[in-house]
Simulated scan of single mutants.
Amino acid sequence: MALSRRALLAQATAAATIAATPSVAAAAADTEPTTTTTLRGTIPPGAPDFVYVPVDIPPGVREMRVSYRYDKPPTPPGTPGNALDIGLFDQRGTALGGRGFRGWSGGARSEFFLRTDEATPGYLPGPLEPGRWHIALGPYTVAPQGLPYEITVVLAHSDYHRDPDRIGGTQTVVLADDLSRTAILAGLRAGRAYAAESSAVSLDFTAVGPRGAHAGIGERLRAGDPAAEVLVRLSVTGAEACDLRLVTDQGLAFTAPGATSLEWRTRPARASYVRAEVRHPAQAPPLPGAPAAFTNPIWLDS
């Protein structure tokens, strides 16, 4: 029995094979740290539920942007037209429900992006590891003449690996008990760290629960009750005029534009973690501004 694409997020079964081989056109400018690739193909009537279009990700990519379009020719009454869904799998494979799944927007969006610290809703932020990724196309219906599509992939490469940019412009701050190698490694393994654009930026991020329970970056706050109120505090120096943002497993939860501190209340029943972002003002709304700092989560346990 064919797998319904509506079960993409719920079932883990073998994926269908690719139904069309795309043509590729790539362009990269020496003066710009981006690479743009255009993938074109045509999905025939009767294609399987999923078509996997390969995309090779080189080392050093910090952001991936994908947009797509497809032809929608007129069809006679009662004849299905073209409708095409889209999603993404990384280098770990295309098994449904597997570790390689990075997101699915169906037909709701014509574009999406991923970075280590953020992604379009419906997609998972995280490292863009090198290897062969796959754009998953879901031909919901296909017109008799087929479904021509065009996908544009823009890869932004890390500026810190391009001459003459200097190495180490950003920094990782580890909250360690002391400056010994053992303590620093313990802090890193525990996730007690945040990234900042320079040594001028520093932050303090904590969560306080009932009866004085307290947790910092990378730690767990044991509130004792899913309905217990948790107070989250964030203060920042060296990043004036930036926007402070709190993100939970439910998405963006709170924003304080142009602030240097904030307080926000939540409950473990509403959020299993909260992390902080400090961002420069947006240059192309609704996309957020460039990050000045971001933290690992504080975990909220009931």
Rank of each mutant, 00 (worst) to 15 (best):
Ala10Ile: 12
Glu197Asp: 15
Thr42Tyr: 00
Asp225Met: 02
Glu63Leu: 08
Val24Ile: 10
Leu185Lys: 13
Glu229Trp: 10
Val51Met: 04
Val51Ile: 14
Phe294Ile: 01
Trp264Lys: 07
Arg267His: 14
Ala186Val: 05
Ala292Pro: 09
Ser110Lys: 13
Thr170Phe: 03
Arg211Lys: 14
Arg211Trp: 09
Leu262Cys: 07
Gln250Trp: 05
Leu185Cys: 05
Arg189Ile: 08
Asp163Pro: 01
Pro33Val: 11
Asp90Tyr: 04
Asp117Gln: 12
Arg69Phe: 00
Pro139His: 04
Glu150Cys: 03
Ala7Gln: 13
Gly93Leu: 04
Val66Pro: 01
Asp243Pro: 02
Gly106Asp: 05
Arg5Gln: 08
Thr255Ser: 15
Leu231Val: 13
Asp301Ser: 14
Arg211Asn: 13
Ile86Glu: 00
Pro33Thr: 09
Pro291Gln: 06
Ala26Phe: 00
Arg275Thr: 13
Val142Glu: 08
Pro164Met: 07
His157Arg: 14
Ala16Ile: 07
Thr116Pro: 00
Phe89Pro: 00
Ser105Ile: 12
Pro45Ile: 09
Leu246Phe: 07
Ala195Asn: 04
Asp301Pro: 01
Ser272Arg: 14
Gly103Ser: 08
Ala83Tyr: 04
Gly78Met: 12
Arg192Pro: 02
Ile184Arg: 09
Leu179Phe: 11
Tyr160Lys: 02
Thr152Gln: 12
Arg132Ala: 14
Thr31Lys: 05
Gly238Phe: 09
Pro125Cys: 09
Gln11Cys: 04
Ala28Gln: 13
Thr37Asn: 02
Gly168Asp: 11
Ala2Gly: 00
Val232Gln: 07
Gln250Arg: 15
Thr75Phe: 02
Gly131Leu: 08
Ser110Trp: 08
Gly251Asn: 04
Arg6Phe: 12
Gln145Val: 12
Gly258Tyr: 02
Glu219Thr: 09
Arg132Ser: 13
Gly138Ser: 11
Tyr68Ser: 03
Pro130Gly: 10
Gly93Thr: 10
Pro45Val: 11
Ser180Lys: 06
Ala276Gly: 06
Thr141Ser: 15
Asp85His: 08
Ala7Gly: 00
Leu8Trp: 13
Trp264Gly: 05
Ser199Arg: 08
Ser235Val: 07
Ile135Lys: 01
Ala19Val: 08
Val201Asp: 03
